[in-house]
């Protein structure tokens, strides 16, 4: 009973303390200071990183991208960080309603900040509304001509549309915009690997491994590169250093099995390939072929 009362009282308190947002005030409620727009913050590249960045499994891009954060890691950012990081986290958590509410609240302060617009674009990206996403990535580039994240994300959009050559160009441009950013290089390396430019991919992933030895995506890609270079034992070593849940990933498991197979560990290869859970249609084709090979 007491709890109920407290709850009700708290509700009342919340209601009575709530204030109408200035843009929604009636004419009679308005004051001159309501018209005062806060000074829009300009872009500061020194502050353009994820604060409280932390990714256990994928640290390489942790201060550039929340893409590979776990849900818990994303929520951590949401709770601890500044408004922009919070916006970013909400988008990644696909809490678009809250994300947009926050975006509206911080709009005036950040209307000139490409970080803000990039985040809005990503919100739409994660809703798979790619046209809108592109419009906002373009907006970010409108605010800061050489804004690498927005250009990278345009590349990602091309990837989504399977326009990989265009994606590559976009990632390369993003790389030029910011030579210190790792994400475009990571994406380029992934494309190289996917399309058989093994040496280029390999050298990139070796470099990335030095930078972030605990990044599992880097190690998985490096393992694949070894496989494609037919350095099967090396490939196996890399694959085996990965955590189990990474090993079981669709883009890892098949090549892991093939590495094992070609390195002579056929039994394990077969076990792995049999247990593989492949959902992607294109990957299924590769899986069938690989299974045939491994089960020979």
């Amino acid at each position: 009973m007491i709890k109920k009362v407290i709850f009700i009282l708290c509700s009342f308190a919340l209601v009575s303390c709530s204030t109408t947002r200035k843009e929604n005030k009636d004419l009679g409620e308005l004051k001159d200071q309501d018209f005062v727009r806060p000074k829009a913050q300009k872009y500061n590249y020194r502050e353009d990183y994820i604060t409280h960045a932390h990714s256990t499994l994928f640290p390489l891009l942790s201060d550039e991208s929340m893409e590979r954060y776990t849900e818990g890691e994303k929520e951590n950012i949401e709770e601890k960080s500044n408004e922009l990081d919070k916006l970013m986290a909400l988008c990644h958590l696909k809490k678009s309603k809250e994300a947009f509410e926050l975006a509206d609240n911080i709009y005036l302060k950040n209307s000139e900040n490409p970080i803000y617009w990039n985040s809005v674009g990503l919100c739409f990206f994660y809703q798979q509304d790619y046209r809108k996403a592109q419009l906002y990535f373009n907006k970010a580039l409108g605010k800061e001509k050489n804004y690498a994240p927005a250009m990278n994300n345009i590349g990602v959009l091309y990837r989504m549309k399977n326009e990989d050559q265009k994606a590559l160009e976009a990632f390369k441009t993003a790389k030029i915009y910011n030579r210190f950013s790792q994400t475009p290089k990571f994406n380029i390396a992934q494309l190289y690997l996917e399309y058989g430019l093994i040496d280029k991919a390999f050298s990139e992933f070796i470099r990335m491994k030095k930078m972030a030895p605990n990044d599992m995506d880097v190690r998985a890609a490096l393992a694949t590169a070894y496989l494609l270079k037919k350095e099967f034992r090396q490939a196996v070593n890399e694959f085996e250093s990965l955590p189990e849940k990474i090993q079981e990933r669709e883009d890892v498991v098949i090549n892991y099995a093939l590495s094992l197979y070609y390195s002579g560990n056929k039994e394990k290869a077969r076990d792995i390939i049999k247990d593989a859970n492949i959902k992607d249609t294109q990957t299924k084709e590769y899986y069938s072929f690989a299974r045939k090979v491994v089960m020979q």
Partner: peptide, 28 residues
């Protein structure tokens, strides 16, 4: 296909995320 000289190996790869989005420019 062209990588394999002897047509012995057929590999494929596709990053599960396709590409990583980028939220920030990163520390410089």
């Amino acid at each position: 296909y062209l990588l394999d000289q002897n047509e012995n190996y057929i590999f494929d790869y596709s990053y599960y995320l396709k590409a990583s989005s980028m939220d920030r420019g990163g520390r410089r």
